[in-house]
Every structure is written in structure tokens, then in C-alpha cells.
């Protein structure tokens, strides 16, 4: 399986502010009644985006000026809560290609990386700078440089880090581990024989 090398993502930003944005908020549980991930994009942030009657609430995703954005900006502990891959799947299917936040819940980070979504960590002030620039000009082009761990926008640049295993996986096109895991099958079987509960 050959995967794209994700060295950088360029696009427009969408600021979705707040800390501890949990996976129930990213994709409410009732939309997980499905046997494929297709179509999840339209339910992204549904309950904070829509009223009960389906009309819009004020939310950046409902604003015309942010339409077509591919880089999601948020706060601390993004994606906390459940292990549902439905959350990054919905983010990706909606059209986002990268996330810049102050930090991520562990499982969310892993799930996103496996889908080829770089989750970059930046300082609050720096995210605020990017968000301010996006507010001023929603058409502003932002480049998330995964390799160089940097975000560039409107002539400015700020550091944005990603843990080394994630960075390596993305820039070298091995973010989906399945191919490599399959190559290890003989070693898997050998390890299994050393464990009594698996050997039995």
C-alpha cells in the first residue's frame, strides 16, 4: 500500500475556539448509527451548529466567509472523550486536512494520524495570531509545514510541533500502519508463542 507523503497542507483556516472540545461535540453519538463512515461530514459539530429544527446556530462552520476552509484551529485538549474514529472521519469528510490546536487527547491524535490528518500543536498566542489573521481575511492562505513544524501565513510564521512518530509517519507516507504491521506477521506469530495465554 503506498500512501501519500504528507509534508505540508496549504489552505484556508477556520477558527473553532474553545478548550476540551470532546468527541460527542465533534460528532454526536446518534450519527454513529451507521455501518460506514460515508456521509459523516455533514454532521460535524452538529449540535453546536444546528437548532433542533435544523436551522443554523451561530457557528464558524455556518459562516459563508469560512466555507472551503481546510485547516481547523482550536484550543486545548481537542478531541477528548471517546475513541470514536467517527470524530476525525467527520472532520476529514467535511473537508479538513489539518488541525492546529493547543493539544489533543491521546486517542484522537492517533486516530487522526492514521487518517493522514496532521494534528499540530501550537502555543495559544500563536493560534490567536493565526485566528486573528483569518478573521481579518478569511481567504488568507495558510501553510502547515509538517516537516519543518511551522505554520506560515501572511508573511508571518509560528512554530507548530507534532510528536516525532507522527511527523515521521506523515512525511514518509506511513501514517496508516497496516502495511508495516502486516510485514511483521512472522514476528507476531513468534511473539505469540512466548505468551502462555496465546500459546494455549
Amino acid at each position: 500500500m503506498s500512501l501519500a507523503k504528507i509534508t505540508s497542507v496549504t489552505g484556508r483556516g477556520v477558527p473553532v475556539t474553545g478548550n476540551d472540545i470532546d468527541t460527542d461535540r465533534i460528532i454526536p453519538a446518534r450519527f454513529m448509527k451507521c455501518v460506514t463512515f460515508d456521509g459523516l461530514g455533514e454532521f460535524l459539530f452538529y449540535d453546536v451548529r444546528k437548532n433542533a429544527d435544523g436551522s443554523d446556530k451561530p457557528h464558524p462552520l455556518n459562516e459563508a466567509r469560512f466555507k472551503g476552509g481546510t485547516i481547523l484551529l482550536s484550543g486545548a485538549n481537542f478531541g477528548c472523550g471517546s475513541s470514536r474514529e467517527h470524530a476525525p472521519q467527520a472532520i476529514q469528510k467535511y473537508g479538513f486536512k489539518a488541525i492546529i490546536a493547543e493539544g489533543y487527547a491521546e486517542i484522537f491524535f492517533g486516530n487522526s494520524t492514521t487518517l493522514g490528518i496532521p494534528c499540530m500543536t501550537a502555543a495559544r498566542e500563536d493560534i490567536a495570531k493565526i485566528a486573528a489573521a483569518v478573521e481579518a481575511d478569511p481567504k488568507l492562505e495558510i501553510t502547515v509545514d509538517v516537516g519543518a513544524q511551522q505554520v506560515r501565513f501572511g508573511g508571518q510564521s509560528v512554530p507548530a510541533t507534532i510528536r516525532e512518530s507522527g511527523r515521521d509517519a506523515l512525511i514518509n507516507g506511513r501514517w496508516d500502519a497496516i502495511g508495516e504491521l502486516m510485514e511483521g506477521l512472522p514476528a507476531v506469530k513468534a511473539t505469540a508463542t512466548t505468551l502462555p495465554y496465546l500459546a494455549a
Binding site: 454513529m32 463512515f37 512518530s165 509517519a169 500502519a177 504491521l181
Partner: peptide
């Protein structure tokens, strides 16, 4: 340590999972 199969290229570990539990919401995909 007992479940480590090998190191992967990105520095992560290929870890053996002895027991896998599944349910209806996250397995069909």
C-alpha cells in the same frame, strides 16, 4: 515488553494484542 513484536520505522512499537473485544458501533467499518 512481553508483548513487543518489534520497533517500527517511525519509532513506535508493534504491540501484540492478546485479546480483542468488539461491538457493533466501531467494528462494521
Amino acid at each position: 515488553d512481553a508483548h513487543t513484536v518489534r520497533k517500527l520505522a517511525n519509532g513506535q512499537t508493534q504491540l501484540l494484542i492478546g485479546t480483542h473485544l468488539i461491538h457493533e458501533v466501531t467494528s462494521p467499518q
